[in-house]
Simulated assay, not measured.
Amino acid sequence: ESHMKLLGCKGTTGTQESFMKLFKDEEKVKQIDGKIAEKMGFDKVFGVSGQTYTRKVDSRVLNVLASIAESASKFANDMRLLQHEKELEEPFEKSQIGSSAMAYKRNPMRSERINSLSRHVIALKMDPSITAATQWLERTLDDSANKRICIPEAFLAVDSILILYGNISKNIVVYENVIRTNLMQELPFMATEEILMNAVLKGGDRQELHEKIRVHSMEAAKQVKQFGKPNDLIERIEKDESFGLTKEEIEKALNPSNLCGRAPHQVEEYIENTVNPVIQKYEDLIKDINVEVKV
């Protein structure tokens, strides 16, 4: 159900006084609003207004657009971070120039543009909020010039954001081998909770073992960060007899599939129960959208 309403035909002060003089029939005047709303594609009108609809409407509209920008910007930030790690990459055209200064670079220009435009939309959100908050009595005329700038700019910017968003999502490149390499480098740290639980189940003292893992982890991280050596956390734990675990038991904890809980099924369920219904509901609106970006 739509939350948007039409102002209707209320006259210069919102009282419909001129229409009452014209038609001399209150029922007819009341019907005017409904007929005009239907003609304009609305099913509701404001029951009470001044010459204009409440400027809270503009504020709500910008809040929705800014919310889209917030989500898109978060996606673009994550995309840029993961591209920096060489795990994901946004599409890159054959003749695209990644950097005007450094020929070897492949800058995530689409994601950077989403961030830039999103920042502008989020900043625009303040305009109608301040306007709505500072209107005098039923309405003052300091809203018009501001609205004619911030509302169109917000819609145009979000339109561009969504085109870029769709283009990246449709053509995203995933480097599974890099992801696997990065995962395996961090896996010893990620597996410490599993190792701790297994050691406790075999009779170990949780507080004591937790402190030992903390100390071993700090030293292993030091070897990696300061000396560029491999992560030797597992070797340290294997040599520590207080854990009471065999080498095989410790290595079993290093299986990534044992550390992801319900994540695979959660993703499948989310797509099936949340994403797909929305896509199906708006299929007619999105099926012909062009998300090609020329660079």
Rank of each mutant, 00 (worst) to 15 (best):
M4G: 04
G11S: 08
T13N: 07
K21H: 15
E26Y: 10
E26R: 13
V29M: 11
V29W: 09
Q31A: 15
G34P: 01
V45R: 06
Q51N: 11
R60Y: 15
L62K: 05
N63G: 14
E70H: 13
K74A: 13
K74I: 10
A76Q: 09
H84F: 15
E93G: 03
Q96C: 01
A101N: 06
A101R: 05
A101E: 03
M109F: 09
R110D: 02
S116C: 12
S118L: 09
S118I: 06
S118M: 06
H120W: 02
I122H: 07
K125Y: 12
K125I: 01
D127H: 09
P128A: 07
A133F: 15
W136E: 12
E138Y: 02
D142W: 04
N146V: 12
K147D: 10
I151G: 11
P152L: 10
A157I: 09
L162E: 09
L164T: 01
N171F: 04
N182A: 14
F189Q: 09
E193Q: 12
V200E: 09
L201R: 15
L201S: 11
E208K: 05
H210W: 03
K212W: 01
I213P: 02
V215T: 11
S217I: 08
M218Q: 14
Q223V: 01
K229A: 04
K229C: 01
K229W: 01
P230W: 00
L233F: 00
R236Q: 07
K239W: 00
N255P: 02
P256F: 12
P256C: 09
V267M: 14
N273V: 05
N273T: 10
V275P: 05
I279S: 07
D288W: 05
V295R: 09
